[in-house]
Nucleic acid binder design. Structure first.
Length: 259
DNA sequence: ATGGCCCGTAGAACGGGA
């Protein structure tokens, strides 16, 4: 079973790329973030034609998340839950469901903007509520959990192209990294770090300053697998190819295989 | 030294992203 996550920065703009990518990489589950679509405009028919069911939670202009599941192999997502019951939120950043024996949690963590910003205060509250929601039932749930999405956190210096320049900045600040570690301690593994990886592996590159060409990026998109899945994970890769296309998302897809 | 791009909503700039 293959799963992937991709912040598409507008599914309206990126739909042709998503459909092309799924044709080349027919993953069983694709978690999307920043769809930026109200539900009435979600491209259900186009994705069905491409072989995928979709569940989604959107709003105008900002945020928006979805879980696509491959019809032929895993069918429809079940027990779909939108948001976090412990954290009522107008921002659509969370959708979860059961797919093929896994509890899939697709998350678009707040960005935070800058450490001085009011938005930075919302970020730890949102993450703490996510941890409070997931942690208590994690090990006892019959379906193991996969938490994947755009975390907007670069966990360690190795996940940052210029750690000195980013030290203490949003996405890299200690309170954010501490919460990433708290998630791990709650019972997850960072699937990317289960395997040997090339140095300077990133999942996001700024549109400005030729960020991708210079590989000036951050690794902020993650697939956390519950600890009991560790032995079943075979690979975790970042696919840089879509970032090279005309009019790309600033994020690349991240993909794992679970046997 | 600063900001340099892209997207949505607009129907001109601006908020937001990271």
């Amino acid at each position: 079973m293959k799963l992937a996550t991709w912040n598409v920065n507008s599914l309206k703009v990126r739909l042709p790329q998503v459909i092309d990518w799924l044709a080349a990489h027919p993953v069983d589950v694709l978690a999307l973030q920043e769809t930026k679509l109200v539900d009435s405009r979600f491209p259900v028919a186009e994705l069905e034609a491409a072989g995928y069911h979709a569940v989604f939670a959107g709003q105008p202009t900002y945020n928006g998340v979805a879980i696509l599941s491959r019809k032929e192999t895993v069918g429809s997502a079940r027990s779909v839950e939108i948001g976090n019951p412990l954290f009522p939120d107008e921002q659509q950043r969370l959708i979860s469901a059961e797919v093929n024996g896994l509890h899939i949690v697709c998350a678009y963590f707040p960005n935070g903007r800058s450490v001085e910003s009011e938005k930075y205060q919302y970020k730890p509250r949102w993450i703490d509520a996510l941890i409070a929601w997931l942690s208590p039932t994690l090990a006892s749930r019959s379906e193991p959990t996969v938490l994947l999405g755009d975390f907007n956190i670069a966990p360690e210096a190795a996940d940052v192209h210029d750690p000195e320049a980013w030290a203490g900045q949003v996405l890299c600040s200690e309170p954010e990294r501490a919460r990433f570690r708290t998630l791990i301690e709650a019972g997850f593994r960072d699937s990317f770090r289960l395997f040997e990886q090339a140095p300077r592996s990133f999942s996001w590159w700024d549109y400005r300053q030729l960020g991708f060409r210079r590989n000036a990026g951050l690794r902020i998109d993650h697939i956390l697998v519950e600890a009991r899945l560790t032995e079943r994970v075979r690979a975790c890769v970042i696919d840089r190819a879509p970032r090279k296309l005309p009019q790309p998302s600033d994020h690349a897809p991240v993909m794992i295989e679970i046997v």
